[in-house]
Design a binder for these strands. Structure first.
Lengths: 201, 201
DNA sequence: GATCGACGGTGACATTTGTCAGATCCGCCG
DNA sequence: CGGCGGATCTGACAAATGTCACCGTCGATC
């Protein structure tokens, strides 16, 4: 029996995935969580064989949760389950110690299959996505550029961002400018979109 | 036996929801679709009692699909199932003839419950969301303002938008300016965010 | 028939944004 | 030690953005 923890913020989707896994005779969902920190807590408690973590969750993403679970429950294999197959996500997931990366676009049957494969010690990564992630290279944004771009994403003005990050307006403009350059964008909105689609934010 | 059509673009979520509904003895999933147009086609084919439609789908959203299904299969009750409980979505869903509006945040048990209730002729709408939708009022953006704002959402410049919509740059700026005003935003990025969060885009 | 709102436009203006050339620190690496 | 890159800043400049006032045409509505 493979003991699985499932972390996913949308209750209906979580319930549906539980029922999907429930169809498998050799898989048992022993814990559920709706946020990253909750997933870590539950993992510590139930010590599952496999943790299925969504990336897009409120209050700390699935990737940080993955790293913490690897540390606290070393025997637990971490599978990342995400809506978006972004290269940067895959890279960060691997660095956080995940052994599988599934996108929700793939057929439902993949889920149970992936759980079994990671339990046997295999890795499960979509080869196309892996190729894209490798060819795209790592995140070119410096930490500070990333911060500033993220702060600009919600429509804040340069002044707002400068205040929030305790920087001068000129510095903020400089970081934005270089982020725009590195993302091959023409303005901050495009830069934000490109960075997002690459999983750099 | 309640015959259900399920339209949802993410295959894994779709499969999971099918398995969830499969647990119910009185519910049978008789059709699946991954896009709006496909949902309409399948509905015409299988004539389900209830159609469960996701809003966020590629190639024509679930709301237009809802309207078309109502027209072509009048006996079919339409349930909208969405990630985001946006007031504007609810309003448009109701105008398109949907009888229920579910957010994926709600517990998995709500799904089967809603299917049964709409089959009995009831409507299923979260009271809180309904209150928000009513108090927020209708979409204040004129069709053209909406077009221009939508075109600005991906980081296009005024020139790009003007070209794409066959308008002068001045006109584009005017529409953007009034959209920014109506959304109480300070720039186009904020305007896009606000309009999105209200379901006006 | 007058009024109103949506549509489309012009021109001028102030503000914001994006770019560039520097400059200073600091830590790291050969 | 010297050099390099990251972080931070300044000042100046050009381009894009946002605002405003005002002009017309429609079609609907009172």
């Amino acid at each position: 029996m493979i003991r699985v923890l499932l972390a996913e913020d949308q209750a209906m989707v979580r319930g549906a995935l539980v029922s999907l896994l429930g169809l498998e005779p050799d898989i048992e969902v022993v814990g559920e969580a709706a946020s990253g920190p909750e997933a870590v807590a539950v993992a510590r408690e139930v010590r599952p064989d496999v943790a299925l973590l969504d990336i897009e969750m409120p209050g700390g993403d699935g990737i940080t949760a993955a790293a913490m679970i690897r540390e606290e429950v070393p025997d637990c294999r971490v599978v990342i389950l995400t809506t978006f197959g972004r290269p940067g996500y895959l890279r960060r997931a691997m660095e956080a110690g995940a052994v599988a990366f599934l996108v929700k676009d793939s057929p439902a049957s993949e889920l149970a299959a992936a759980v079994r494969r990671v339990r046997r010690g295999e890795r499960v990564i979509d080869p196309d996505l892996a190729a894209v992630a490798l060819s795209a290279g790592p995140n070119p944004l410096s930490p500070r550029e990333r911060d500033v771009l993220a702060a600009a994403a919600d429509g804040s003005t340069v002044g707002d961002i400068a205040g929030r990050l305790h920087l001068s307006e000129g510095t903020v403009r400089n970081y934005l400018s270089s982020a725009i350059h590195k993302t091959h964008a023409r303005n901050r909105i495009e830069a934000v979109r490109r960075a997002r689609s690459q999983g750099w934010l």
